[in-house]
Simulated scan of single mutants.
Amino acid sequence: MSELSDDAAKALRDALGAEHAAVWVYGLATAFARDSPVTSAVGDAMEQHRRLRDTAEQLIKDAGQTPPAAQPAYDVGQVTDQGSMIQVLLRVENDCQVGWRSVLERGEHAELRRTALDGLTTSATRATRWRITAGQRPGAQQFPGQP
């Protein structure tokens, strides 16, 4: 893949921005995860978001563009415990779903669409797990990533 249309490039930059935020938020979440399964899930999610962030950055570089940098911090509101942390994680996963769905809809190249589908699927799966952990029903959304 060498070139990106303007629409695909913007969508990929937005998805990368969501991944930057997710990595930051999951780092914060480590301070509030108290249950072993939650701590493990936070660590796994952090690895997946780093992988997707790195992949998005490389795709942008391969297209001859400069990827946007992460912000030094992100406004998450007040996080006081594991429950409020999970609500923030749900928001960040939703943002990632929206970003990757946009890439999927605008991507012209198979590699870009595969990455977008991976990002959308893994983020939707994680969000479902967080909803179930928080006791929310239904656990899954009908159309993940729909703004």
Rank of each mutant, 00 (worst) to 15 (best):
E47D: 13
H20T: 07
Q58I: 00
T122K: 04
I86K: 09
A70K: 15
V42R: 00
T115C: 06
P138F: 06
T66W: 00
M1P: 05
T66R: 05
G99Y: 05
D14H: 13
T66P: 03
Q142I: 10
D44G: 03
R101C: 15
T30P: 00
V42F: 15
A140I: 05
D6G: 02
Q136G: 01
E108Q: 10
R53T: 08
P72W: 08
K61W: 12
M46P: 01
L16A: 04
M46I: 05
I132W: 02
L12Q: 04
A8G: 07
Q71G: 00
Q82F: 03
A70H: 03
A56W: 08
L12N: 04
I60N: 00
V103P: 00
E93P: 01
S102G: 12
A11Y: 08
G99D: 06
S40W: 02
I132K: 04
D54Q: 11
R53P: 00
G43E: 12
E3W: 11
G27V: 05
K61C: 01
E105K: 12
T39R: 15
Q82V: 13
E57Q: 14
L52T: 00
R13G: 11
A69R: 14
P37K: 04
P68G: 10
Q71T: 02
V88C: 11
S2H: 04
E3C: 06
A134L: 09
F143D: 03
M85D: 11
D44C: 03
I132G: 02
I60D: 03
L104D: 06
A45T: 05
G107E: 08
F32N: 00
R129V: 06
T128Q: 06
Q58M: 07
R34G: 09
I86V: 13
Q97W: 06
M46H: 14
Q48M: 12
R50N: 13
Y74K: 01
P68K: 12
A21V: 02
V38P: 02
G119R: 04
D75K: 13
V103S: 04
N94R: 13
A134H: 08
Q71A: 15
M85A: 04
A21K: 15
E47I: 15
A110W: 08
D81C: 13
A45N: 09
L52F: 07
I60T: 06
E105M: 13
G27L: 07
R126G: 12
I60C: 05
R13S: 15
M46N: 11
M1K: 02
R53C: 08
R129C: 04
P67H: 10
C96F: 05
M46V: 03
L104S: 15
S2G: 13
D44A: 15
V79Q: 06
D95L: 12
L90Q: 12
R34N: 09
L4E: 08
E3T: 10
S40H: 06
